[in-house]
Design a protein around this nucleic acid. Structure first.
Length: 598
RNA sequence: CGGGACGUAGCGCAGUCUGGUAGCGCACUUGACUGGGGGUCAAGAGGUCGCAGGUUCAAAUCCUGUCGUCCCGACCA
């Protein structure tokens, strides 16, 4: 492609609305333009990158045995009502009425396609002999994001690959899942991105049924913990910690309290339990300010309703409660924060003054709690807190549990290592769905004994936009983007420095044409512009390999070849130029392929 | 949905407090010079100051409302 014939609106300055590197650079390099909050136009360069990523995904899906189909964005609301997801999605589901003759048709823009495909399967798969089968689609999906942000990373309209597996047994499902998991590893490896498969919260299905594929990035919305020693990695919602109950563990304090602010409980004097006035201080922050203490010296007492029954959950003041862990510990189906009335009934105080001492409900304490010495908690009385609240004396618990989000420095649940926390961009998710959709949409099959069962499903998504955005987010320098070869919009940039010099132009055109003929994606900067402008733009858009043809080099019979990431160019005789470029590309591709698992 | 910030030329911004002819840099057009890391000079074009209403002799500027965008939080198969 000739630069002068395509549309690459680069920008010297950073638009004020863009905050994170990927957003700024995608705008500056002319990849995207915003249309409104949460929706973007992909310009020619950005779209090429999307299509490259898409092609890799498609190839790997097919390699894993999945077959492609295409489903409509417009879907009848009825399908979502049957699966209960109209309510579950709430406002996220974009839906509207459309007049058709004298009636109104209620439809939704597909936020994903489980309903449509399950309905399809319900009609056409009726025997175990028709399975296993995995089908996939690469399409635009719509979700009314409450708050679109980070440029193209969180938008209301996005391109997604979704695959759905249909199996007749759990063993088949495991196999389908593993094939997809393997395909995902190959996909992310091929895109040239660093990636991390992590255990993810799988909701009501439980077990090891869900993995997210994360691209580690400082600005990622998700938090992940991982252990550098073993391969343990998990989404923060899911991550276990290797902490033990200090009440039952003979090694009290050991390994469980990495935060050397406190000594082991056994060696420290307990203060008297005392009640002090804290008017209007209902939050940890306010109490700390008033009493000049730190959040880690406090007990946060959260009152939950677990299947309708109140429970007090004790968490160290500076930590975050993990509702999934609490729910599983209680073996409850539903867990929600209690309402004001329940809190008053249980504590005898308004919201904000709950504490363990004298509370009238079950108490569930996190492992951190017994390690606190003389902590502060609510006093179960309006405008008052207790100091010197010590477990075993002032209140009792039979055991402690892992109830909070993991945090850097927590012990690894798998080995003797220590967890570290990284941020990541969720680019893919593999998920064992089970029979939720097949049951509600009546997708049943008969087995060899003529018994009817719901089809067992799995679903497997990849955000195509996010692959591209994550590449931009994680691969750039002060001059601009640095594309991995595999998803770069163009592989080679041919730069004639002076387009009205006949010799320069003739050689450059020859490079362009010969590279194209060899199947290389090449961008030809034929613009009448000063060399500085071409160099700056070239670096900004980040094409991996650049060849410069200019009067200075030609005088010595050379062209200059440089990887985007290289310090300076290599001078190569004109006649060997094209062959050298082809060889360099080949070597790079081979090296990249080394990293792709089988 | 709660909190905060901002809407002035394609982009980045000044002007708003203290009302009085709408500005600067980059980009754009034309010409000359220049020609290996975003050039120089000259001449130009481009703006309902987000929108609506109000106050005033007079509103980008003050008041009210509204729309939009961004950030933090809540939410997120």
């Amino acid at each position: 492609m000739r630069w002068s014939k395509t549309f690459i609106p680069t920008m010297k300055e950073t638009p004020a609305d863009a905050e994170i590197p990927s957003h700024q650079l995608m705008l500056r390099a002319g990849l995207i333009r915003q249309v409104m909050s949460g929706s973007y136009t992909y310009l020619p360069l950005g779209w090429r990158a999307i299509r490259k990523a898409e092609a890799i995904v498609r190839e790997e899906m097919e390699r894993a045995g999945a077959v492609e189909l295409f489903m409509p964005a417009l879907q009848p609301i009825d399908l979502f009502e049957r699966t209960g997801r109209r309510e579950a999605f709430g406002d996220v589901l974009i839906n509207f009425m459309v007049p058709r003759g004298d009636r109104q048709v209620h439809m939704a823009l597909g936020p994903t396609h489980e309903e449509v495909i399950t309905d399809l399967v319900a009609h056409h798969i009726s025997s175990y002999r028709q399975m296993p089968i995995t089908m996939f689609q690469i399409q635009t999906k719509f979700r009314n994001e409450e708050r679109p942000r980070f440029g193209v990373l969180r938008t209301s309209e996005f391109i997604m690959k979704d695959a759905y597996s249909f199996d007749a047994s759990l063993e088949q499902l495991d196999d389908s899942y593993q094939k997809m998991y393997g395909a995902y590893c190959r996909i992310f490896a091929r895109t040239g991105l660093e990636y991390l498969p992590v255990e993810a919260e799988s909701g009501a299905i439980g077990g090891d049924a869900s993995h997210e594929f994360m691209i580690p990035a400082e600005n990622g919305e998700d938090r992940i913990v991982r252990c550098p020693k073993c391969n343990y990695a998990a989404n923060l919602e899911r991550a276990d910690t290797g902490r033990r109950c200090p009440l039952t563990d003979p090694r009290v304090g050991e390994g469980a309290d990495n935060d050397s602010t406190h000594d082991s409980a056994a060696t420290v004097e307990w203060d008297e339990l005392e009640q002090i006035d804290t008017p209007n201080a209902t939050s940890i922050e306010q109490v700390c300010k008033m009493l000049k203490c730190k959040p880690e010296e406090m007990i946060k007492t959260l009152i939950y309703l677990a299947d309708g029954k109140p429970v007090a959950v004790l968490i160290r003041g500076d930590r975050e409660a993990n509702e999934g862990k609490i729910r599983r510990t209680l073996e409850a189906d539903a867990l929600e924060l209690a309402d004001e009335k329940t809190i008053f009934d249980v504590t005898g105080a308004p919201v904000g003054f709950a504490g363990p001492v004298g509370i009238d409900c079950r108490i569930l304490a996190d492992h951190d709690i017994p390690l606190l010495v003389n902590p502060i908690s609510g006093a179960n009385a309006a405008d008052a807190h207790n100091t010197g609240v010590n477990i075993g004396r002032d209140y009792q618990v039979e055991a402690t549990y892992d109830l909070r989000n993991a945090v850097a420095e927590d012990p690894c649940p798998n080995c003797a290592g220590t967890l570290e926390m990284v941020h990541g961009i969720e680019a893919g998710h593999v998920f064992k769905l089970g029979t939720k959709y097949s049951e509600s949409l009546n997708a049943y099959f008969v087995d060899e004994k003529e018994k009817r069962h719901p089809v067992i499903m799995g679903c497997y998504g990849i955000g195509i936009n996010r692959i591209v955005a994550a590449a931009c987010e994680t691969s750039h320098d002060e001059n601009g983007l640095i594309w991995p070869l595999a998803i770069a919009p163009y592989e080679v940039l041919v730069v004639p420095l002076k387009i009205d010099d006949e010799e320069v132009m003739q050689i450059a055109t020859r490079f362009y044409e010969e590279l194209q003929a060899a199947g290389v994606d090449v961008l030809f900067d034929d613009r009448k512009a000063r060399p500085g402008v071409k160099f700056k733009d070239g670096d900004l858009v980040g094409i991996p390999l650049r060849v410069v043809i200019g009067g200075r080099g030609l005088k010595e019979g050379n062209v200059e070849i440089k990887w985007r990431t290289a310090e300076g160019p290599d001078k190569i005789p004109v006649e060997e130029g094209v062959a050298t470029l082809l060889r360099m590309l080949e070597e790079r591709r081979a090296a990249d392929a080394e990293n792709v698992p089988n």
